[in-house]
Amino acid sequence: MPHLHRGTRPPHRRRRHASLAVQAAEGRWYLVNATPDLGDQIEDCPDLHPGPGVRRTPLAGVLLTDAELDHTLGIARLREAERIRIHATAPVRGALLDRLRLGDVLTPYAALEWRELNGWEQQLEPGSPITVRAVPVSAKRPRYAAGTGPETDTWVVALRLRDRATGRTLVYAPALATWPDAFQQAVADADCVIVDGTFWDDDEPRRGGFSGRTATAMGHLPIDGPGGTAHRLASLRARCLYTHLNNTNPLADPAAPQHAALTALGVEVAADGMEISL
C-alpha cells in the first residue's frame, strides 16, 4: 500500500498557489502574482476566460509582490496575449529580466509593458476606481537572484488596494518576513487583510526535516507563538485571512484543531475560489 511521507498533502486537500484576481473595471482584471497554477485558476474563474474575439482576454496585467518562482512562473502562460502589463518594484523587475531572462523569452510572443510599483498610490488604469500602493516588507530575494540588485526592502512588498468609489481597502501580503511600522500603518485601517500563513509555528521547517532554518529565517513570520501574526491580526478591525499555506501547516487539514484557535481570534483561512467584495 502506498504511504504518504510526512508533510505531503493528500490530493483532496491540495491547495493551489496563492494568487488574487482583482477587477479594475468591467471586463478588466489584474492578477496579483502569476503562479504555476495559473491555467487551472483561470479555468475555474469564468470572468477570466478569454474572448469574445480571437486573442482577446479580460486579463489586463499582473501585479507582483516579489520575484519568487511560485509567484512569477505563470507569466509565461500569458504569452498568447498581444501585450502583458507587469507592475513590479525595480529590484523584482531587474531579477526577472537579468536572471530569469523573461524579456528574452517572452518578447518574441508578446510585448512586455513594465510599470513600477512604489510607495505612491497609483491608479491601475484610466477610468478605474482601483488604486494600488506597494508597502515594503522584506529584503529577502529569491535564490536565483542571490548577489544581485540593491540591498532594499522592496524585494518583497505587500500591496494595498483601494476602491476610491467606496473608500474600502484590502492589504495583501503573501510573504511576510517582518512586520515593519509601514505595514502596521497599512493594515491599521484596512477593511480586509490577507497575509502569509506559510507556517503554523517557527520551528515547523526544522521539525518537518526539510530545512535547517526556522520559518522566520526562511522569510515567513509564523502564525502561532512568540512573534506570531495571529494575535496581531486579531487586534485589527479588518476581516483577516491567511493564505500561502505550506503542505506541513496543520491548517491544510480542515479538521485540524488549529482552526478552532484561529476562529476564537476571529481570523480565517482563505479558500481556493473565495470571492471577496469590498
Rank of each mutant, 00 (worst) to 15 (best):
L4R: 15
L4V: 08
H5Q: 10
G7Q: 06
R14I: 06
R15Q: 13
A18V: 03
A21P: 03
V22R: 11
Q23G: 07
E26M: 05
G27L: 01
W29V: 13
L31F: 15
N33Y: 00
P36K: 01
Q41S: 01
Q41G: 00
P46M: 06
L48S: 10
V54S: 07
R56D: 15
T72Q: 05
A76M: 04
A76F: 07
R77G: 15
R83V: 01
I84F: 05
A88M: 03
A95G: 11
L97S: 05
D98P: 02
D98G: 10
D98I: 00
G103K: 11
T107D: 08
T107Q: 11
P108V: 09
A110S: 15
E116A: 12
N118I: 00
E121R: 14
E121N: 09
Q123Y: 03
E125M: 13
G127M: 07
G127H: 10
G127T: 04
S128E: 06
I130S: 10
A134M: 02
K140L: 06
P142L: 06
P142R: 05
P142G: 10
Y144E: 13
A146S: 14
G147W: 08
G147R: 11
G147D: 14
P150K: 06
T154F: 00
V157Q: 02
V157I: 08
L159T: 08
L159R: 05
L159F: 09
A165T: 13
R168G: 09
V171F: 04
A175S: 08
A177G: 13
A177L: 05
P180E: 12
Q185R: 15
D189Q: 07
D196S: 07
G197V: 04
F199D: 12
W200D: 09
P205M: 05
R207V: 12
R207I: 05
G209R: 06
G209F: 05
F210Y: 13
S211N: 03
R213Q: 15
P222R: 06
L233P: 09
S235W: 04
S235M: 10
R237C: 02
R239M: 08
N249D: 07
L251W: 06
T263Y: 07
E268W: 09
E268F: 01
V269A: 11
G273L: 07
M274W: 12
M274I: 04
E275S: 11
L278N: 11
